[in-house]
Every structure is written in C-alpha cells, then in structure tokens.
Simulated assay, not measured.
Amino acid sequence: MQEHNRAKVLAAARDELAERGFRDAKIDQIAERAELTRGAVYSNFPSKRALYFAVLAQEAARTSGSRYPPTARTATDALGDFARAWMARLPLAGEDRRSASRLGRDLLPEIVSDERVNQPFSQLTCLSAILLGLCLEQLPSSKRTASRMVQVAEIALTTLHGAGQLAAAAPGFGEPFAVVRACEQLAELDLDDTWQPAHLPHISPARPTDQPWTPPALTDALRDEPAHLDDDGVLAVLGLHRLAAIEEALRAAPPTAAVTAVLVTSNPGELGPLVRLIVTDLRNSLRAAVAPSAWPRLQIIHDESGDLAAAAGVPAVSDATETAVRIHDGRITARADGYGACHAAASA
C-alpha cells in the first residue's frame, strides 16, 4: 500500500509541478490529484522540495540514455557527445510549458535558496566532474599534455549548467549546437591539470584489522546493475560533504582493485532523491558519450538506509562522514577514518 500511495503521489506531483512550477505547486492540490490526504503525502515525502527532487529523479530514470552505443574515439568527440546528450533534455523555445523537459527549470534556483542543499549539490557536481574527467583521460587527445582532465570536465559542466539556466530563463536564446561545439574544444585545452594534493604525504596510514565482510545485495547506481561488493578493493563510506575524496581512492588503488563509493547522509528523506537525480543524469549522459570500457572502475551505492555503512563498521553517519576500508578475500583487512581515509585505505 505504501508503494502504491507513493506512486500516486509522484504522478500527481509531476502533473502539478509541470502545470504550476515548483513555487506555485501546492501540497493540498497534489493530495487532491492523488485522491489522498495531505498527511499521506507527507508520510511519503518530508517536504515539497523532497517531492520535487523525487519527481525529477523519476523522470531521469525513465530516460535510459542513448539508444545507440557511443562511437567517440577521442576525448573531443566524447565531450561533444556528452554535451549533446545533456542539451537534448533542455526545453525548446516553443515547447509546451507542461512538458517533462520544463520540470527541471526550478531545480538550481531551489538549490541556491538553501545552504543545506548547496554543499551536497556542490559535491555531487564534483563527483560528476571526476567521473567525466576520468572517462576523458582514457581517450586520446591531439594537443593535451596533462594526464588529468577533471578541470576540463568542471568547465564543461559549468558551461552546460549555465546553458540550462538560460534555456529556462530566456527560451530561444543561443544556439545549442554552438554550446556542443564549444564543449568539444574544451577537450583540447591544456590546463596543466595535475594530481598533486598537498595533504596526501601527511595522511596517517590505514589501521590493519581483520573483520568479516558480509555486504547486502545492492545496485550500482552508476551502471544501474547489481553491484559487486565482494570483489577485492576499496570501499569508501562518504557523506554528501565529502564526495570529492573518492578521487583519492581512484588514483591510489592498484589497477585491479575495485573501488566503491557508498553515499550516505543525515537527511536521506530530503537529499536522497537529489543524489539519485544527479547520478542518474550523469549515467544517461555518459552512456551517450563513452563506451563502457572507458568508464572508471567506480561503483556508486545509494545507502539511504545505512545498511551497507553498518556492514562496513560505520553504524552512525552524517554528511561529514569519511571512512574507507580495504576488502580482501571476504574480510575487512584495513580501515581509515576522517580526512584522507580514501587515500589511506587505497594505499594499504
């Protein structure tokens, strides 16, 4: 019954939000559309914003990405295809204001309006840039000399988010294909982007341990397939203020080691849907741009219940959590906590 009511609320909210926009949408009207009480809406979603994020996440999940396998063979082509997939979901100038592509027009203004959402969104965008940059690093570029491409990815995402805001605020402004071509050229910029964090030499080593590892069965949100949590490697439990730290694990772990990011938050009802939205949007755009063989070895787990974190020995989580463990032969063999934990566990 709970899942049935949740589905009714989401469907009703989608219609209300498409018709009125986020600010003018009313919970009472959503309840009436769903033929439920106001209390039934709030029993499924703690706030109107959480419901809005959940509607956008559901819409993103319905879009599986490109129907055709990516063909890019260079970083330039891949970044162009990524930008093209991103721009394709933006509303057109003459499009019906109730269309699915217009649902997201209030997303960034709503994020900007609340500091409690700013930092998680910033870190989710950092995570997106890290993964896009790592994909681009696997592809050749004619002019680039630096090995790291995360800064290029950051500039591309800045450009695309700006284009999205203008598509909502000034329909018809600019030429989408020009934005795509501009993003393509970013892949050839030499930004002297190197991986040399000043704090890494000062990180304390991971502590040896020997504990059983019995993770629950969960889904890798990056690929939308069952996660391989029994594989040897590094598992990092990261609060939404610490997501960028996963690059430390990806850079330091041996080439054959699996790397898993377990995303946790002290406010899963409100922020969980936002996390799902951003990861799903990233997955859809990557599918259109980069062959799976060039994707990073990272798995992403949405751990809103905290069950996987508890299995890793982290019973209490917050948005500042950073704990990493090393998995080997079904055992936890090393552990690190706090700033630099991802690097320490990956280097153990």
Rank of each mutant, 00 (worst) to 15 (best):
D81P: 04
I27A: 08
H343K: 10
P296S: 03
F45A: 06
P208A: 15
H241F: 05
R38V: 15
A25N: 03
S113Y: 02
R251Y: 10
L132A: 01
G133T: 06
M87R: 07
G340N: 07
V152D: 00
R67H: 09
P254Y: 13
A146S: 14
L157R: 03
L124E: 00
E154I: 03
P197K: 10
Y42D: 08
S293V: 12
E270H: 09
F173H: 14
P69F: 10
D329K: 13
P296M: 05
G338Y: 09
P296N: 08
A153P: 01
W295I: 08
A57N: 05
A146C: 09
P197Q: 12
K26Q: 15
G313Y: 04
T265S: 11
D81T: 02
P70T: 15
T125L: 10
A198Y: 12
I301V: 12
A13W: 00
I130K: 01
V180W: 04
G272R: 02
R38F: 13
A253H: 05
R297W: 08
A261D: 04
A153V: 01
H228T: 15
F177H: 12
T321L: 12
E184F: 01
L160F: 10
E247A: 08
Q123L: 04
E137I: 07
L92R: 14
H228V: 15
Q58K: 03
D307P: 05
G313W: 03
Y339V: 08
A60T: 03
I301S: 01
L107S: 00
L308D: 05
F173V: 09
A178C: 08
L136F: 04
R6M: 11
A178H: 13
I130N: 00
A54N: 05
V262I: 13
A336G: 09
F22I: 10
W295H: 14
S99K: 04
A320Y: 10
P215Q: 12
A153W: 01
P171Y: 12
P120K: 05
D224M: 07
G338F: 07
V150Q: 03
E225N: 07
T256G: 09
C126A: 12
R105T: 11
T194H: 10
V314Q: 11
W213L: 12
R20E: 15
A100T: 13
R20K: 15
L191K: 05
A253R: 00
I111E: 01
M87P: 00
P197H: 05
S66P: 03
H161M: 11
F45V: 09
A169Y: 14
V55F: 00
A54H: 01
I301R: 01
R20D: 14
L166I: 13
Q185E: 13
S122K: 04
A18R: 07
